[in-house]
Design a protein around this nucleic acid. Sequence first.
DNA 1: CAGGCAATGCAATGGAATTGCATTTTTCAT
DNA 2: ATGAAAAATGCAATTCCATTGCATTGCCTG
Lengths: 137, 137
Amino acid sequence: MKTEVENILISKKINPTANRMLVLDYLLDQHAAISLTDIEKGLTPANRVTIYRSLKLFSEQGLVHAVEDGTGTPKYALCIEDCNAEGHHDLHLHFYCSNCKETYCLPSTLIPKVELPDKFRVEEVNLLIKGICDKCV
Amino acid sequence: MKTEVENILISKKINPTANRMLVLDYLLDQHAAISLTDIEKGLTPANRVTIYRSLKLFSEQGLVHAVEDGTGTPKYALCIEDCNAEGHHDLHLHFYCSNCKETYCLPSTLIPKVELPDKFRVEEVNLLIKGICDKCV
DNA sequence: CAGGCAATGCAATGGAATTGCATTTTTCAT
DNA sequence: ATGAAAAATGCAATTCCATTGCATTGCCTG
């Protein structure tokens, strides 16, 4: 009998090692996107480099996506839609609360279609909104 | 008789020192958003810290804006619309070309209105699109 | 059981922002 | 104009992370 976490990893073609299951398990508990340092702190004793490499692998395999929220340090969150190694398809927006400093994915809010000038080819769309979140209003 | 560069600085309530005029002059020449390191290289002999502090001040006074293009290192570009110390109002989108690695402001392309869930207060909107630019197609 | 590949951990590297402090430049009142 | 005060500058040091090299450990298979 395999755990759910294990099955998720396998379905993404990721070898389900103990460390990777820990990292994924931790990510599943989160309601916001978190940094490598956040995970490191919440997951003692764990090696930062191993977490880093797990996240990198997860990202390559379409299990998590990295969010640039303007703070300079990337945040990670589980992909919600059907992403895979070929590409990420969860084009929802990210919201950074300047009060609580949390970065949220808002998957229910779709990114409006953007019209680019001629000849520009779009590969990826990132929409980041800063403001005050619903909990901090 | 004051130079144009000097007048721009004064109009933004920035003391027009020699270094700051150099930095602004360099920014005026650019067609893409550039990093601190780019400016440092293009502006020898210039002190990195001074450029850094100039950009920081320019940004606070609404003369330039910092662009997060996902590379981790911020890029800077002159504000086009009427920004000031109270806030930035040039909500155009930014385009990062994964071929030439340039980051462009596309002021002519407006960001569509985004509907957020209740209670979220919006302060700032950043739309970053990655792809291939018109010159690299 | 042995050999080999994958995963891990430690230590080191490297890039870049940021800051403290001493020095230089500019401003301003006299 | 001139000297004191304030602002700007430059250097060196710090700090913070991501990233990588390499040696070790763990796991899987023949």
